[in-house]
Design a protein around this nucleic acid. Sequence first.
DNA 1: GCCGCTATTGTACGATCGTTCAACAGCGTT
DNA 2: AACGCTGTTGAACGATCGTACAATAGCGGC
Lengths: 221, 221
Amino acid sequence: MTVAVHAAAAPARRPRFERQLPQARRAALIAATIECLKRYGHAGLSIRTISAQAGVSVGLINHHFPNKDELVAAAYRHFNGELLQGLRAAVARAGDAPRERLRAFLQASFSPPNLDADVLAVWVVFWGLYRHSRPIQRVQRATYSGYVRLLRGMLAQLQEARPGPGRVNLRRAAIGLASLIDGLWLEWCLEPGKFRPREAVSLCELWVACLCGQGGGWNTR
Amino acid sequence: MTVAVHAAAAPARRPRFERQLPQARRAALIAATIECLKRYGHAGLSIRTISAQAGVSVGLINHHFPNKDELVAAAYRHFNGELLQGLRAAVARAGDAPRERLRAFLQASFSPPNLDADVLAVWVVFWGLYRHSRPIQRVQRATYSGYVRLLRGMLAQLQEARPGPGRVNLRRAAIGLASLIDGLWLEWCLEPGKFRPREAVSLCELWVACLCGQGGGWNTR
DNA sequence: GCCGCTATTGTACGATCGTTCAACAGCGTT
DNA sequence: AACGCTGTTGAACGATCGTACAATAGCGGC
């Protein structure tokens, strides 16, 4: 009898929640945070919105993160990391030719998943938090240098392969290229209809060609 | 007696508030909104913070604006207008030579009051609101075209005065220059120590020189 | 099958949010 | 000097915010 009850009731009896390793739960909460940012912008950065998105209760966030700011900073760190990892992979896939490596970098920058209106909106919200959040500032300083290093490395390879007389200041070149990329991202986000991603790539290549001694061998069309 | 009381009490008796024309009060509230954004970022966008900054009560804002979103949008419109007006004035002051006009434009872009960490942070907050606020989208579409028109006009003058063979697509050139300027703004905001404003100006000039037929006459140093 | 650890829940709390609205008061008009 | 228009006040409302905390329950080890 009790056996029959157990057999009949057991299928309907399922756990109300599933325990997970802190590591896995933290990752899920970070993913939920980014998803909420994509959907609702700055308004999505609330404990209740995020916990609902993650399918957990409100209290769980403060069990895995000391406070909301730290969760947001962790999401920012993850977001930066994903971007950089994707760009590095695209560059590595392109082989050894410096120009092809840069082209792969640019194409990856201006194509999904990076060039997505939602994704760009997420960046802008993070940047808006930057000045008044110590944790986010720490993440920024720690990860942005990796991005610049990647960019500068490619420009250095490019300049090395093409030892023209006009040796341009590498630091300024990297700053300019990074700015141009970020600016094009921003413009495309604010007015997606104004230009196509391909144009952004070719504008960046034109810029690099300009730096590398005025066009020799670069097709600017 | 009553006369004496009036004479003695009158100096201490001052109005608890001063009535103002709606136009003037609206302007004051908009100025307070921008000031709060500079000081506190996105957190400064609260009715109570803004009304305290303006020195009025909480209820007054909803007397002059239908809701908070409209106030923020009006502040965005004013912010855009101030920038554009300042840039136009700088260009007009520069005279007629196309290259000098562009230089004045760039120098105005990368010097106070435009190049200020607080000001740039204000821009970023507005951009973060863009995707989820209809009023702000309307303002953006209405005012940004004026900025692009100014930029494109200067590039057209520059190209006209220098009829080289390499006739560059004016639209793409304007997009690229606007992106580079915005990107440099952003980079400088996130890491003010990385480069100096003068470098930003010269990077933009290098870009334009590149567009105008690879450097003839432009000193890229 | 029970125990113990702890991930997880969900209520509760105080603060702050945007908005409403009846009452007040500055100030020009009569 | 009383009036009337309306710009202005400030309390009040319900909603939502981030966080704290005691109770619950999943799940591995005995």
